[in-house]
Simulated assay, not measured.
Amino acid sequence: MEFTEQRVFESAEWTALEQTHQDRADALTLERRLRAASGRSHPVDDFLFTYYPFRPGLLRRWHPGARVVLQGAAGLDRATWKWYTSEGADVAVDEAGFVAAKGRSVRFIASLLSKTALRPANFGCFGLHEWAMVYRQGEHRHVAPLRLGQGDTDEVVEANRITCSHFDAFRFFTPEALPLNELQPTRENQPTFEQPGCLHAGMDVYKWVIKLGPLMPGEVLLDSFELARDIRRLDMQASPYDLSDWGYAPVAVETPAGKAEYVRLQKGFSVRSTALRERVVSLVTHIAAVPAP
């Protein structure tokens, strides 16, 4: 493979970038690694390592992204990594090989993120998907107790519009809650329903960046992880669970003030997630083998 139209990072430059990335990743995963070593768990922060089956070590592995030549890397372990290729003393991501093997997935991700970024955001769901997941249910997915008890929690679900647009949240609704949702998202209609106001769609940017592997620069990966972590905390604060023992004050979406606070925070996450989606799509569609969605 001949390296053409690529940026070139000198050895000192890219090794410094790699070290900075590893330090940032280590800081982001420190608490998780300490808990794992002692057999402890956290009901909020561990979600990103259990629901998404990606080990902390994946965050630590720095990629420069597609079309970047790393000078002097051919004699290092990186030259043997999957989806890398060497030319003389230099190494670069084998974008052609990656796209040849995973082109269908790459095109789906680019299309989904592009359409989601362009769609109007819905700021009227108020995080009630988590409430629908425990509606009329005696046993719950999380160990924390319900803030309002089961009866009052059920009344909140019944008194509000349920407008969840994300299939991977909707599929955890209790059977009694499923018909209460105004939408019926499925895996097949995901590209139609996904919208940038959705907290779960924002968290999923991290999943899509991981799946794009070495095509994505390291800072995009860690930015998407930080976004998912921050969103997860709001997701649980707005849930029906009492997480005060874990240091989380509730965003009481059963009240007008709580709804307003939720929307304020939700809009900030929508801005962040849309910016990341647009960056990912721009990076992917600049690879010659992937047409613009």
Rank of each mutant, 00 (worst) to 15 (best):
Y206V: 12
A169R: 01
L180S: 08
F123Y: 11
F108Q: 12
R107A: 10
I210W: 01
M203D: 02
V143D: 14
K207Y: 14
R136N: 11
R161Y: 04
E176L: 08
P145A: 11
E176M: 07
S114G: 13
K207F: 08
R147L: 08
N189G: 06
N189I: 04
F193N: 07
R147D: 06
E158L: 13
P214T: 00
D154H: 01
T186S: 13
L222E: 00
R141Y: 14
L183H: 15
P196N: 08
L212V: 02
D223P: 06
H200S: 03
G197V: 09
K102Y: 10
F126I: 05
P196E: 05
Y135A: 05
G124N: 13
A228R: 09
V99D: 01
G202W: 02
Y135K: 09
P191R: 13
S105T: 10
A169H: 05
R147I: 09
G97P: 00
A132E: 02
Y206T: 12
L227T: 01
A159D: 08
F170H: 13
P179W: 04
E182I: 10
K211D: 00
A121V: 11
V156P: 04
C198A: 11
A121T: 10
D94G: 07
V156L: 07
P120C: 08
R141D: 12
R119F: 14
A177V: 05
S105E: 12
G88W: 12
D154Y: 00
H200E: 10
L212M: 04
A96H: 03
R171F: 04
H129D: 07
R136G: 07
E194G: 04
E182P: 07
D90Y: 07
R187Q: 15
Y206D: 11
G149I: 11
E182F: 08
L178T: 15
Q184A: 14
D94E: 10
V99P: 01
F225L: 05
F98I: 03
E226D: 14
L178K: 08
C198G: 06
A132I: 14
P196I: 04
V143P: 04
A144G: 08
M133F: 08
A177E: 02
R171D: 06
W208D: 00
T163A: 13
G88V: 11
A177T: 04
R229L: 11
G197F: 03
L183M: 13
F193H: 11
P185R: 03
R136V: 05
R171N: 10
W131D: 03
S165G: 06
V209Y: 01
L178P: 02
T116N: 14
F193V: 09
N122M: 12
R107T: 05
A177Q: 01
H142V: 12
H142I: 13
E139T: 11
I109G: 05
P217N: 01
V134L: 13
N189D: 11
E95I: 05
L222A: 01
D230T: 10
W131Q: 06
Q184P: 03
E155K: 15
G202H: 07
E176C: 09
F98K: 00
C198E: 07
G213P: 06
Q137K: 14
W131H: 13
